[in-house]
């Protein structure tokens, strides 16, 4: 390889820092949320490792990725979920427009397998969603995945526990996710090249009717069971008349 070739190879990589030139044309993937696109300067960085750190599970961290997942699966690409914390609920995924036959769930037995699967998935162009479960992934391990992502065409999303926030990470983009109000996801930018960390964004998630109810105000009394209604129906049926 000649010198110019090496340099041009280096320059095409996402993770090469290029001095003051902050307005680099980068390839991005649309997030499906207008405000978030603006925050991330176009969308999720392509060919990069993205680390998401939710304060807690269940605040809407997966809904954030639903538009991305939908686009990806409709282009015929595979999406791999590595060690999800719970079982994905197929009816709601299907209702969100995700092709279920493009979804694979993989359970790893140890961190070695976890890393191997993650790397294979990235290198084979699948969209990776990986949950760090067993033990916090170390810098060198994540660095390996970041390198794999930089060499391939795909993005990889890693869900780390909030405790990982204090540790350094090689990921191109790091976001902290928490929620102050219900149905509102607060996104805090922790790291993105060309942006100052600390920018915040409130994102409205899917709206459900929301009026809070205390338990003692709930409709009480035993609901009519099937056997009751069956008895009622038999009493009213024309056969008995």
């Amino acid at each position: 390889m000649t010198n110019t070739e090496i340099i041009s190879n280096l320059l095409t990589r996402q993770d090469t820092w290029r001095g003051r030139n902050r307005r680099l044309p980068r390839s991005t993937i649309c997030t499906g949320h207008k405000d978030l696109n603006a925050l991330l300067q176009g969308g999720w960085p392509a060919s990069a490792l993205i680390e998401l750190m939710p304060q807690q599970l269940g605040i809407g961290e997966l809904s954030l990725l639903l538009p991305t997942l939908k686009n990806h699966s409709h282009n015929g690409h595979l999406c791999l979920w590595l060690d999800p914390p719970y079982q994905p609920y197929a009816p709601s995924l299907s209702a969100a427009g995700i092709a279920l036959d493009k979804l694979i769930i993989v359970r790893s037995k140890n961190i070695k397998e976890w890393l191997w699967v993650a790397e294979q998935s990235i290198r084979n162009g699948a969209l990776l969603l990986a949950w760090v479960r067993q033990q916090p992934a170390r810098y060198t391990q994540l660095r390996k995945l970041q390198l794999a992502a930089a060499e391939s065409n795909s993005s990889a999303f890693i869900f780390s526990p909030i405790a990982a926030l204090s540790a350094p990470s090689p990921a191109t983009l790091r976001l902290k996710l928490d929620s102050q109000y219900i149905h509102q996801l607060q996104i805090t930018l922790c790291k993105l090249r060309g942006r100052v960390a600390g920018a915040k964004l409130q994102l409205n998630l899917q709206q459900y009717p929301s009026q809070r109810t205390a338990l003692n105000q709930l409709p009480t009394g035993r609901h009519r069971t099937y056997s009751d209604s069956a008895m009622l129906a038999s009493q009213n049926s024309p056969l008995h008349n």
Partner: peptide, 24 residues
């Protein structure tokens, strides 16, 4: 891309065994 994905599934199958993989 479909070639790549079937290749990936085969590799995961071979290394982790068929039980490690599932689909909702």
């Amino acid at each position: 891309c479909s070639e790549q994905s079937s290749e990936l599934i085969d590799r995961l199958n071979a290394r982790l065994g068929i039980d490690a993989l599932s689909r909702p």
